[in-house]
């Protein structure tokens, strides 16, 4: 095997590893779970269904731009708990919090008016019936 070919294969393997390791770690998912913990408290992560919500949001985030998605996974994966809140990270965090506040009953859970966590589609363009806030209209008179 030529030196050039060997160098190429080693480089490619290294690059694949650099991508796959953080992907395996679930960098974005970890970041979103930390966001939830910081905002709502650690007990929020114990709610049944929270993991699915986080996974769905993470899967949808950056779906239309694979390069950005991989970049985000790498960034969150490598930085872990010490992630610097650069612009895109802050934007994702805000979008994630707005999504869970709008499209789940997390506020009702936080206020003690619901015990089971429920959510609609995380796709903001999906017409989901029954915004959770208004579903409690009669109970809050």
């Amino acid at each position: 095997m030529s030196l050039r070919r060997r160098a190429f294969l080693v480089g490619a393997a290294g690059l694949a590893g650099a991508v796959l390791v953080p992907l395996t770690l679930g960098g974005t998912t970890s970041f979103l779970r930390r966001t939830l913990k910081d905002h709502f408290g650690p007990e929020v992560l114990e709610l049944a269904g929270i993991d699915d919500f986080v996974d769905e949001f993470a899967a949808l985030a950056g779906e239309d731009d694979p390069a950005k998605k991989i970049a985000a996974e790498m960034y969150f994966g490598w930085h872990g708990d010490r992630v610097k809140m650069i612009g895109p990270a802050k934007a994702m965090q805000e979008r994630f919090l707005f999504t869970i506040l709008h499209r789940s009953n997390i506020i009702a859970v936080q206020q003690g008016r619901a015990t089971e966590f429920e959510y609609g589609s995380v796709d903001p363009w999906s017409p989901v019936c029954g915004l959770y806030l208004s579903a409690f209209a009669d109970e809050t008179l």
């Binding site: 017409p127 989901v128 019936c129 029954g130 915004l131 208004s134 579903a135 209209a137």
Partner: peptide
């Protein structure tokens, strides 16, 4: 009304 706020294409 289902109060989804998606009135431009009402889900119901």
């Amino acid at each position: 009304c289902c109060v989804s706020g998606a009135c431009n294409l009402c889900p119901v």
